[in-house]
């Protein structure tokens, strides 16, 4: 398998990672208030793979 094939295979994975992360970050910055400090959530969302955004969507949002 050459490099371009590998890229094509990894591209969707990276893309979906990005979608998940960007969605979480968009919600984080658009929200008026979140549970905890806003900036604390940034590394959680960006660095903790998959589980970080899940935790943010589950617990980061305050019920309005």
């Amino acid at each position: 398998m050459d490099k371009s094939d590998l890229l094509m295979i990894l591209l969707p994975v990276v893309l979906i990672q990005l979608i998940l992360m960007v969605t979480a970050l968009t919600f984080l910055f658009r929200m008026d208030s979140v549970r905890g400090k806003k900036w604390v959530w940034v590394p959680v969302i960006v660095l903790v793979n998959i589980v970080g955004p899940i935790l943010f969507f589950a617990f980061g949002r305050k019920e309005s």
Binding site: P12, V13, I16, I19, L20, F27, I50, P53, F57
Partner: peptide
């Protein structure tokens, strides 16, 4: 609007690909 329809499928897709 709460993005549940985005993040839950994204999580399963990533787990599935990995």
């Amino acid at each position: 609007r709460t993005a549940k329809l985005i993040w839950l499928p994204a999580v399963f897709l990533l787990l599935g690909f990995l």
